[in-house]
Write a protein that binds this DNA or RNA. Structure first.
Lengths: 247, 247
DNA sequence: AAAGCCAAAAATCTCGAGAAAAAACGTTGA
DNA sequence: TCAACGTTTTTTCTCGAGATTTTTGGCTTT
């Protein structure tokens, strides 16, 4: 199957070389939004951004249009583009939907996964473990590496799920979650419990214990939600939700 | 809340006035793809389409980029755009995913729906019934009206579901399903059984019988799948799937 | 006759400038 | 002092033309 330029996850670890400027701007912009360099709700002025990303105005507009797909950018007719806003209520919705889809996907993956899948999973878990060790060692640049390997681990877990659509939706939801997680890790580094959770999920998956794996995975995802909701910025958000409702 | 130009379903029945040329081209193009005027897998040449839709090349490109969101168009780097291909396997995936999401959504909707929701549902069912009567009367232009009201009915059913994300994903899946259904109805008009199914679902929903409503709705959606799979074009497709795999 | 290669043609991708709309600002009047 | 209005400024939206890349077609060679 052809490699789609706007496809979901990059399964192989190779560095992705953008084939077109639009694609390059799209990836760069997506990353900058997920990692919070463009704040939620912020206006995305084409005039400024075209200089920052070194492309023409039309090119940047097209990249922004692609980002509407992932619900990372919203377009308001005749009033330009904005970074999609965030809220605790939204994260709760994302989390609940993700738990439902990811449970189903994991169940299918465990049912249908072959030995190649097991191999990929062992590999992904190992790399994630190494990254978590580095993270505990407090190396500064290792956060991005951990994020990347965490993503690959979760992606591999459901990799043998036969449903492309579920995987597609999960890719979207994962990116959304990542935005929130990036905010929470700014305040507090990744807790050490997370490694143990990953290990338990990993073992249950290899043991083909679907019920246990889903139970653990659900707890894992919900725990991330609670970690974010404990962050002060969001505590105040849920208080001012009524205000935000107006308009 | 602001009206997003690339939002999901249009809830109110008012005619939507596109605020920008990009938005207009996007809607028109989306409709033309769903209704099969652009065949699945067909190449979408910007040079031709810009004349057909009477917009500039850049504008049309942006509209196409928006369509990638709905997975109705795929972009192949440096090789232009194509209408997303279809296959029976894809429809099966769509159907299975849709059943899962729509069951959950309907359950939530029945649990949380207030009287306003009931009112909307009664109204949507009534309009759908009228459209089905016209359809039985064999009026030619009434197919589009039926499609529209069928969409509104299904949308209203899950309208009280609290999860925006589930509704968003269902909107995407519904559009995908519609492409397939449009093909099957070309061969055989909507069966009269469908009205009875709608009525049963409607009654179960009003009676707040979630289990029964979900059971009926699942059967309803799966029946649509089987109707399509019986169409000759798809029977041969599933036979030639191996060929299609090769690039 | 089939495979490989080179040149012509088509299509894509990209950019900057002009038209239209929205936002910002200062002015005027009650 | 406040509100409403008109002008200025900024930003968005749109278009057509030029540079790259892909594809097509024909030619040569084995």
């Amino acid at each position: 199957m052809d490699q789609l330029i706007t496809g979901d996850f990059q399964v192989n670890g190779d560095a992705y070389e953008p084939k077109t400027l639009v694609d390059g701007a799209y990836r760069q912009l997506r990353r900058d939004i997920i990692e919070g360099r463009h704040a939620p709700g912020a206006k995305l002025r084409v005039e400024h951004l075209k200089d920052e990303y070194e492309v023409g105005a039309g090119t940047l507009r097209e990249a922004l249009a692609l980002l509407v797909s992932d619900s990372l950018v919203v377009a308001q007719g005749q009033r330009g583009f904005r970074v999609a806003p965030i809220s605790l209520a939204d994260l709760e919705d994302i989390t609940r939907t993700r738990v439902m889809l990811e449970s189903e996907a994991l169940r299918q993956s465990i049912a249908h996964g072959d030995e190649a899948w097991e191999g990929n999973l062992v590999s992904a878990f190992h790399l994630l473990t190494r990254a978590e060790e580095k993270l505990a060692g407090d190396l500064d640049g290792s956060v991005n590496e951990w994020e990347e390997r965490n993503r690959v681990f979760h992606e591999t877990l459901i990799g043998a799920c036969g449903s492309r659509w579920i995987r597609h939706f999960l890719a979207i939801l994962y990116r959304q979650s990542e935005r929130y997680r990036r905010i929470s890790v700014l305040n507090r580094p990744v807790p050490q419990d997370v490694h143990e959770e990953h290990e338990q999920i990993f073992k249950a998956a290899i043991a083909r214990d679907a019920d246990e794996a889903c139970r653990l995975l659900s707890g894992h995802i919900w725990r991330a939600f609670h970690t974010v909701s404990a962050v002060p910025e969001f505590a105040q958000e849920s208080a001012s939700r009524k205000v935000a409702n107006g308009r």
